[in-house]
Design a protein around this nucleic acid. Structure first.
Length: 366
DNA sequence: TTCCGGTCTC
DNA sequence: GAGACCGGAA
């Protein structure tokens, strides 16, 4: 019956030998495949697997997720980044329970109408869970195909992308989409990685880029522009041993996460002046800086952020708890240091909390 | 310090 | 078609 091409056969055989045990490969349950794919969208496999296991343990079914609290979903997501994924996951689960009987749709159009489900995720779930002959092109597949077929256009260009999707579709052996799509992705992960192991590769004879000696130049990356440096100041306002935090708006950066108020340091002001100004603008509170706590650096693709954190106190005496007038948040809270654990913070602010916890100078309110 | 990655929005 | 969204590994 073997009407497989050599390329298909090699990849399928290789996968049979080298298939890793991963959470969604136990059952290929559509819900579990979907959760896994969304978590792995921007996450290294080793870290992602732990998040997948934790997530599926807490929310084992579509129904359990649909009933979940957004705060709890975000808390499980803390540290993964791209928090819109978590929010879309919850929205999509609710939509599937309401409109699709709690099941992941079996056709591409319906699947792609779900929030957070694009071309890749739709193909990944439909092929792996339902064995449908839908292609997937992720970064692994991009590497494998751009090398095998020497794709010289920039990998994200529409020219390259349409070639990749068409090719990925044409390569799927009849009735074996589940195996084949996993095979090519696993292969792109373990053999044809960023640093390819051509010595171990069973496909070198069919690999155009290998023949030309340009494997390291495929795929052709998009040009990137240099990261813009940004200076940010945030304040940890302590009043009667409690700390003020606020919940970010539903859109923009870190949607729905909690933070210490602050903002960009403008030209001509010091970070300390900035944080005082920000507290006035965002909360209408008159504060002063008590001391500088820490400098935290974190890099992004488009920005490199230097976060300067200050310990703050109110300028005037306050008997009770002053009410903030929220201008940059949907909620505000006074919490004890221990209670910070229950809230979801961006990684930089979580780092700041850890630094405070370890620093003896702050033992009086920690 | 540089690099990586799906989806959504504009 | 370009840029925003995030964090950690290399």
């Amino acid at each position: 019956m073997s009407d497989l091409t050599p390329l298909q056969k090699t990849l399928l055989d290789w996968f049979e030998e080298n298939r890793r045990d991963l959470p969604w490969r136990k059952r290929y349950d559509p819900y579990e495949v979907w959760i896994s794919e969304v978590i792995l969208q921007q996450t290294q496999m080793d870290r992602g697997v732990q998040y997948i296991e934790r997530f599926l343990e807490r929310f084992p079914t579509m129904e359990s997720l649909a009933e979940a609290d957004e705060e709890e979903v975000l808390k499980l997501w803390e540290g993964l980044g791209y928090y819109a994924r978590a929010r879309n996951l919850l929205l999509a689960a609710r939509q599937m329970v309401a409109e699709h009987g709690g099941a992941f749709p079996e056709d591409v159009q319906t699947a792609r109408a779900l929030p957070g489900v694009g071309r890749y995720t739709a193909g990944a779930v439909l092929s792996q869970a339902y064995n449908q002959e839908e292609p997937i092109v992720d970064a692994n597949v991009e590497r494998v195909l751009s090398r095998l077929f020497d794709v010289d256009a920039p990998i994200k260009s529409s020219q390259a992308q349409s070639f990749l999707w068409e090719t990925a579709r044409s390569l799927i052996p009849k009735g074996r989409a589940r195996e084949f799509n996993q095979a090519i992705m696993e292969f792109g992960n373990l053999i044809c990685g960023k640093k390819p192991s051509c010595m171990l590769c069973p496909l070198t004879e069919q690999c155009e880029a290998h023949y030309l000696g340009i494997v390291d130049h495929r795929p052709v990356p998009a040009e990137r522009r240099p990261a813009v440096p940004v200076e940010v100041a945030s304040g940890v306002l302590v009043h009667k041993g409690y700390i003020f935090i606020q919940k970010r708006p539903e859109d923009g950066v870190w949607p729905g996460l909690w933070e210490f108020p602050g903002g960009n340091v403008e030209k001509g002001e010091t970070p300390a002046e900035c944080v005082v100004r920000e507290f006035m603008e965002e909360l209408e509170w008159d504060v002063e800086t008590a001391e500088k706590i820490a400098i935290i650096r974190h890099g992004y693709t488009t920005f490199k952020v230097t976060l300067l954190a200050f310990l703050l106190r109110f300028k005037d005496e306050h008997e009770g708890w002053p009410e903030p007038v929220l201008h940059a948040a949907t909620e505000g809270q006074w919490v004890s240091f221990a209670e910070l654990d229950k809230y979801t913070f961006p990684a930089g602010h979580r780092k700041l909390i850890d630094m405070i916890a370890r620093d003896m100078r702050y033992a009086w309110f920690v």
